[in-house]
Design a protein around this nucleic acid. Structure first.
Lengths: 121, 121
DNA sequence: CTGGATCCACCCCGATACTG
DNA sequence: CAGTATCGGGGTGGATCCAG
């Protein structure tokens, strides 16, 4: 594969393209949490105590712009916004799950103790 | 899974741990190229035209420190150094391959033209 | 409740020069 | 051929304040 251009950015391979879409500290954790249900902004934030407001917002914006999640705004007060996976987002869940499993295996390999049941990603 | 500490850095999940080990622009491409053969520094560099000397060197150092590759120095002139996968590095090839395949699928989904045969990663 | 905007510290990484 | 050291620009993300 020759390198290719997308959105004015140069990519050298498909893995890099994936990482630019769903990589970074928070995007996979967000997708993973939405895998089986719709969540409001505040609910999402509650399950990810360490993410800052700015990072959660910008991650959600980018995931939306890239077509992985959809944003549903309810015109009520106080505001209510729900996030859910799109078709593309649903398709990403498999590889995230595999990455997660590989991560546990790697951590065991490093001797890091893991309790993988109901572990967030 | 509660968050955990490794090497003085705080991780929130296993995916993040993986990405800190083999993420970034160049580490997976390096591992992928070493999947079936040992390569010298210069050979590696030749197949990755866009990586800078500094990034290739530092990526190799980190992969070595993290136990994914081993570095074999031959005491000759001119210098000869060979890089190859360790057991841990070999185990990483599967998930890289899956990530690569998902990447092609995602690119097709975006309408980006791909010729995936013998594509570098 | 959800979200946008600003300021700024930090770190990644490219360029360059030098070594055995 | 392979590797190290230094400098500096630019992007990433944290803290904070304001808004509908």
């Amino acid at each position: 594969m020759p390198e290719f251009l997308y959105n004015k950015k140069l990519y050298y391979n498909s893995v890099e393209f994936v990482m630019d879409r769903i990589g970074g500290t928070w995007k996979m954790p967000i997708l993973w949490r939405l895998r089986d249900k719709t969540l409001r902004y505040g609910e999402l934030k509650k399950t990810m105590p360490k993410v800052t407001h700015k990072m959660l917002t910008s991650s959600l914006r980018e995931l939306e712009a890239d077509g992985f999640i959809s944003r549903m705004v309810f015109p009520v007060v106080p505001p209510k916004v729900e996030y859910s996976l799109t078709e593309r987002g649903i398709k990403s869940i498999n590889i995230i799950g595999e990455l997660r499993q590989y991560g546990f295996q790697l951590m065991r390999d490093y001797g890091i103790d893991v309790a993988s049941e109901d572990s967030p990603v």
